[in-house]
């Protein structure tokens, strides 16, 4: 996974609350393989009208949004379904960071597993940043070392779980570490089988 250190880019403002993962990727687009890409379906039913034409006033359809790697939005972003395809859609569209006052827990965990930074700010700061994008369109710098967002001469701090911060900074994948702990898992399984015989499942009849 690509490490996330510091990012300077333009930001896209999406001043809506509770954008759930059903919005981020409608269920009917989830049958394809990851290799085929999910970016074109990001927020599909908000971006496009019933005929499939882009809605000109939707923020993601602005030319500037196509270069933006930071999305700024309101509270409860990514609530709902655990579909990791919601993160695939954001990442494949080109986003590397979402700034919001709160995130769905499963979404945030999926984001970190795909190198997408969920940066949590206060509601007041989110509103101020959304306002700044509207008025100045300024470039943004997101610094994960210091947990700082710089907008022109203004600084905003964000929070992220330190475990996730380390993981994103290093581009770690949990899996390699866990596979190296296979012996510990085996010892747990052995001990556990004796302590909780009721937790195993009966053998399959077939």
């Amino acid at each position: 996974m690509k490490p996330f250190d510091r990012l300077t880019t333009s930001a896209c403002a999406l001043p809506l609350a509770s954008i759930d993962t059903d919005q981020l990727i409608p269920a009917r687009f989830m049958k394809r393989s990851r290799a085929d890409g999910y970016g074109q379906f990001l927020l599909h039913d908000m971006r496009f009208d019933e005929t499939g034409a882009p809605r000109p006033d939707f923020p993601l359809n602005a030319d500037a949004a196509k270069r933006a790697e930071v999305l700024v939005t309101r509270r409860n972003f990514g609530a709902g379904s655990s579909r990791e395809a919601a993160v695939y859609a954001l990442v494949d569209f080109g986003f590397r960071c979402v700034i919001a006052p709160s995130f769905g827990d499963i979404f945030a965990s999926n984001a970190v597993n795909n190198g997408l930074l969920p940066a949590k700010v206060s509601e007041a700061d989110a509103e101020e940043i959304l306002g700044l994008i509207e008025t100045t369109g300024a470039a943004v710098t997101v610094d994960l070392h210091d947990c700082l967002i710089r907008f022109g001469n203004r600084n905003y701090s964000f929070t992220i779980d330190p475990i996730w911060q380390t993981k994103l900074l290093n581009g770690w994948d949990d899996l390699d570490l866990t596979l190296s702990l296979s012996g510990d898992i085996g010892r747990f399984e052995q001990r556990d089988q004796a302590e909780r015989p009721w937790a195993r499942l009966p053998d399959r009849p077939d």
Binding site: S82, R83, E84, A85, V87, I106, S109, N110, N113, N114, D174, L175, T178, L179, S182, I185, E189
Partner: peptide, 16 residues
């Protein structure tokens, strides 16, 4: 609790 696809893969491979 619910998990994402990366976590599903992790559980398939390690049961943890």
């Amino acid at each position: 609790f619910g998990i994402g696809a990366s976590e599903v893969a992790h559980v398939l491979l390690t049961q943890t």
